[in-house]
Design a protein around this nucleic acid. Structure first.
Length: 875
RNA sequence: GGGCGCUUAGCUCAGCUGGAAGAGCAUCUCGUUUACACCGAGAGGGUCGGGAGUUCGAACCUCUCAGCGCCCACCA
């Protein structure tokens, strides 16, 4: 017996546990069927489930469950990312509470501490994913720092290095002074702020003249090694070639000609600080200028300045004061500008000259671009390939070295003269070094670790066992589809494409489904600082995972962000309750499906009809899932379950169940059970918990729902119209009853005059249902029309309802008049179209015929309404 | 500056190949019928941002104007 109330909290965890313990998420490797695989975008080990994950994982789980039911060999590969920066920050913060810094511990001890932290507190998100119902094969869970994946990292690094695609260079990089590490371009966020523009002047050497400078960062003047002026700058070009005195120092710097200096901007003259500005760096290279570094690693000023040890803001103030004293300051203005911040730390990023390691991304991008151009990898929706191409075609070398401790330490060893040995093991490095430098050679290992995204870039094949040759790699690579948000196309999708094309010579995934962001109710981005985040776990507690999942699926239209909506999630919880109660109705009416039941053999119109509708819904869900149209797929099930099965089939079946025709009853019971089963199957990918609970409690099963075969149906199985006329009649009668304010207890007669012959044969079996639902008495035979009859129309024809003394005929007149004017509007449209020769000549025959049919139907109706109006006149 | 997207009912949004404008929520009216009040029945509500064009026919295609959003680059 099903419980009276639907209680997701009672069942969800129990059901999940059974799946996991029974190994239901594992692919059947003996199966010869087609493989389907997805690798999970590895959440950070520090991560906690947020609505973005809930969306991402729900979509993946829907695809995974759907394909599993299609009978494919399905793997959803789970795992986590070691998240270098995020994790190191968490652990350092914990240490700080005890007054310890990572330097107090030393590298080795610190890393130990991180592993300990991971064991204790890491991976909360995996437990949460289980609550959501994610059917990942947890027995294969991987971690980007585990042994196998680390081996993959070393191997590919060495390979790239030996192919000349990884190199070391002293370059200007984005430096995070809080973490004291380089970060990649992608990890820097630009924020608008109102800053100041400082105007001052440098004296020209040997002349009583100045060159005027405008800058937002006066304190960097100690790193100036030139002033640039455009050679087309009429006012200033005479200064090109002269030297100017750099105030507050004893240096003289040249005035050079460079187009970087825009005559229209600022003063037309730009101070060039090659070691602290990306543009200036380029200018410096062009003119072979010295690069003077003025900052320490923590962004305080260094010994090359008079303000050693000061922060940049302090130094800025001091610089201005000093320039003022010299009478060189001219003015300070407010100035809108963008300042770069580290996306993790929030620290102001400083461009800094350092030795770093780079991946030759422009070279790797070539094959990655080709793979999308030739369709080996397809974006869904397609337009994201533009974003991808745009970025890939302008890609910059990727800075992969991080001056952190938590991460993959680079397999680089240095001899004392700086010679580099790049090997997978220290042993091998020594072997090579000894060949060159003799037995006594001493090597020191590079201390830098790799950017986290380096190892996630290998995820599609490293998790399947690479570099070993494994059955899983053979079976599941390339993976079928990657599901992820547009915000990490560059971070991850692009890097996976590059790494996979380089190493595997095959795409990492054949399709890439890109979804949007989950926003708050007002459409604002959710953020902790705004305090507008919604915790999925709370939502699950409140409404159940199925409701949250269904919300995600039904909201997911390609390419658009989703606004979270408590009301809608509640609505899908209501939907689950509705289904629960429908199942209870079936149970109460003893709806069982005999083993030999054949849907194609049912005889009752009602049963034929609901089976046809079920097939239509199934076909629609199937088609939409195949095209990643999640909302259309979800809405098709929703509509069928609530709008068709519950609203009509159950209601129309009641007279059968409450009647005494045993044969009809039996067939209808079987049909109801059959259709309920169908619902459970096609709804399962979206709402796995409630469907499983109902599956387990409504019949003896020889297969678990999670493995139940997905039905193969024709789009049109026919017979769908058999009941549609009755539904239309009922709707029409109800509408008239409401319009005319008929008392609830009134049970007027209905005369079905002119019922179409096709439908007449069915009236016998329908009469009880109609009567019940309309609260009317149906009399199919013709009856002479009398003045007191109200008339209504439906797709089967016209019906009459004698209502003398029951009804306000003024209201009826109003109703008919309104109906008439609507009809006339439509008739005008038909006439206009059909009298248009062009339309008749050029539109497809089918469209024209359809239009004619509608016109004649409307004309017929119009005549009847006019007739009815005439009758009322006399009352 | 370059790219992408959005503008449809009070709100949030669907609308796939151009062929009678849809859903959910909200609103109003009615309903204590034995699956369900987390319910049922009915109703109101839209010149599909403005303009022009292509077409027999445009929410959908083209151009244009306006507003909003996102991404990338730059900003002395």
């Amino acid at each position: 017996m099903l419980e009276k109330n639907y209680n997701p909290q009672d069942m969800e965890q129990r059901i999940y546990q059974d799946w996991e313990e029974s190994g239901d998420f594992k692919p059947d490797m003996r199966s010869k069927n087609e493989a389907f695989s997805i690798v999970i975008p590895p959440p950070n080990v520090t991560g906690v489930l947020h609505m973005g994950h809930a969306l991402d994982e729900t979509l993946q789980d829907i695809l995974v469950r759907y394909n599993r039911m299609l009978g494919k060999k399905v793997l959803w590969q789970p795992g986590m990312d070691h998240a270098g920066i995020a994790t190191q920050m968490v652990v350092e913060r914990n240490l700080a509470k005890e007054g310890i810094s990572r330097h107090d511990l030393g590298r080795e001890k610190f890393i130990e501490t991180v592993w300990k932290w991971k064991a204790q507190s890491g991976g909360t998100i995996c437990k949460q994913l289980r609550r959501l119902g994610a059917s990942c094969d947890w027995s294969r869970e991987r971690f980007t720092m585990d042994e196998g994946l680390s081996r993959a990292v070393l191997k590919i690094f060495v390979s790239l290095y030996k192919d000349g695609l990884i190199y070391k260079a002293k370059k200007l990089v984005n430096w995070d002074p809080k973490l004291m590490t380089a970060v990649s371009d992608l990890e820097v966020v630009q924020k608008e702020t109102t800053g100041k523009m400082y105007y001052y002047k440098y004296p020209i050497v040997g002349k009583d003249e100045f060159i005027h400078i405008a800058t937002t960062r006066p304190e960097t003047m100690f790193g100036d090694t030139a002033v640039a002026v455009s050679k087309d700058n009429e006012k200033l070009k005479h200064l090109i070639g002269k030297m100017c005195k750099l105030p507050l120092t004893d240096r003289e710097i040249p005035i050079i000609a460079d187009d970087h200096a825009d005559p229209e901007k600022g003063t037309g003259a730009v101070k060039i600080t090659p070691a602290h500005d990306f543009n200036d760096f380029e200018v410096g290279k062009r003119h072979n200028l010295p690069m003077i570094n003025i900052l320490n690693e923590d962004a305080t000023l260094n010994e090359n300045t008079p303000f050693e040890g000061m922060s940049t803001t302090e130094a800025r103030q001091k610089t201005i004061e000093a320039l003022e004293k010299l009478g060189l300051m001219e003015k300070i203005e407010d100035h809108p500008m963008v300042i770069p911040y580290g996306d993790r730390t929030g620290a102001v990023i400083e461009p800094l000259m350092t030795d770093q390691w780079f991946v030759d991304a422009p070279t790797l991008a070539k094959d990655a671009i080709k793979a999308v151009e030739n369709g080996d990898m397809q974006f869904v929706p397609k337009n994201y390939e533009k974003t991808y191409f745009e970025w890939m075609r302008n890609i910059q070398p990727w800075c992969i070295s991080r001056q952190l401790w938590w991460g993959h330490q680079m397999p680089i060893w240095y001899a004392s003269d700086g010679t580099i040995f790049c090997e997978e093991t220290e042993e091998e490095a020594y072997k090579q070094a000894k060949k060159r430098f003799g037995e006594d050679v001493q090597l020191t290992r590079e201390t830098d670790v790799l950017d986290t995204w380096f190892s996630s870039g290998l995820w599609a094949f490293s998790t399947l066992g690479w570099p070993d040759k494994t059955e899983f790699l053979d079976t599941f690579y390339p993976t079928s589809v990657l599901v992820t948000g547009f915000d990490i196309i560059f971070f991850w999708v692009a890097r996976m494409m590059m790494m996979s094309m380089y190493m595997m010579k095959k795409v990492p995934f054949k399709k890439c489904y890109i979804h949007g962001l989950v926003r708050d109710e007002q459409g604002r981005k959710m953020s902790k600082s705004k305090g507008n985040t919604v915790d999925p776990m709370e939502t699950i507690e409140k409404y159940g995972a199925d409701a949250l999942r269904f919300f995600m699926a039904s909201s997911e239209t390609q390419g658009r962000d989703i606004n979270i909506s408590d009301a809608r999630i509640a609505g899908y919880r209501n939907f689950a309750t509705k289904l629960w109660n429908a199942a209870r109705f079936c149970e109460m009416n003893n709806c069982k499906k005999p083993a030999d039941f054949e849907a194609s053999k049912v005889t009752l119109a009602l049963n034929k009809w609901i089976i046809a509708k079920a097939d239509e819904a199934t076909a629609e869900v199937t088609r939409n899932l195949n095209e990643f149209r999640f909302s259309d797929a979800a809405n098709a099930v929703y509509q069928f379950v609530w709008g068709t099965f519950c609203d009509w089939f159950i209601e129309l079946s009641k007279p059968v169940f409450y009647g005494d025709n045993e044969a009809q009853k039996k067939e209808t019971q079987a049909t109801a059970a059959f259709v309920l089963d169908r619902i459970l199957v096609i709804l399962h990918p979206f709402m796995p918990f409630i469907t499983t609970e109902l599956w387990n409690n409504t019949a003896e099963r020889n297969v678990k729902l999670i493995h139940a075969p997905w039905p193969k149906v024709q789009t049109k199985t026919g017979n769908a119209e058999a009941i549609d006329w009755a539904i239309d009649l009922i709707t029409s009668v109800r509408s008239i009853r409401a319009d005319l304010n008929l008392p609830a207890g009134a049970r007027p007669h209905i005369f079905l005059n002119d019922l179409k012959a096709d439908y007449l044969s069915q009236t016998e079996s329908m009469i009880k249902s109609l009567a019940r639902l309309d609260s009317v008495q149906i009399l199919p035979q013709n009856e002479a029309i009398t003045k007191d009859m109200v008339q209504g129309s439906f797709i089967g024809g016209v019906f009459l309802m004698p209502l003398k003394g029951v009804v306000d005929f003024e209201a009826e007149r109003a109703r008919l008049t309104k109906e008439l004017s609507e009809l006339e509007g439509r008739l005008k449209g038909y006439a206009a179209k059909l009298s248009n020769e062009s339309f008749v000549a050029r539109a497809p025959q089918k469209v024209v015929e359809e239009e004619k049919r509608r016109q004649s139907e409307a004309l017929e109706q119009k005549a009847k309404i006019e007739e009815a109006l005439d009758r009322i006149v006399g009352l």
